[in-house]
Amino acid sequence: MVPVAGALLESGIDLGPLLPHHLSEVIVGIILMLLVFLVMWKAVVPAFEKLYDERYQRIEGGLNRAEQAEAEAKAALAEYNEQLSSAREEAAKIREEAKNAGAQLLAEAREKATKESDRILASGRAQLEAERTQLMTELRGEIGGLATTLAGKIVGESLADDERANRTVDRFLDELEAAGKTR
């Protein structure tokens, strides 16, 4: 009823369906699988891997480009900021310089004015001194005469002897001066 074809049957071991009915099956299976493997190895897998590589490169390239653009934008922003801050600095510097220059000008003008006023004062003073000296000299000459005249008038006699009179006047003036100095 159950005819099992198998070479092992005679030896008493019955593998049933576990024994290949045709041993060629094993060889055919191996050969076909090798054929399939060869095609996969040489054609299919390389083609797909190439596609994935390309896709990866594409995505990677896009990412890189985006990164690059971002970096550029950042650099531009930094540059702009730097320029701005340097401009600000410069403006501050200029303002500071102007302030300094103004102050300096003011100081110079003040100094000049002071000098000028000093000079004017000094020259005024010198002129005054000269005029006073001149006046004094003139006065001294006249005062002598006047006093002599006055004294002659008072004493009632003409003081003919000029030399004695001059001596008296000088003595008088010296006394006056001494009195003026001690006072």
Binding site: H22, S24, G29, L35, M40, A43, V44, F48
Partner: peptide, 27 residues
Amino acid sequence: NKPFWQAVIGALLVVGLWWLASRRLKL
């Protein structure tokens, strides 16, 4: 026999289908 031809056809199908699929792959 029948299983033999099935295995052969199966292998050819695998090879053929993958071959077709791997032609002109696009991104």
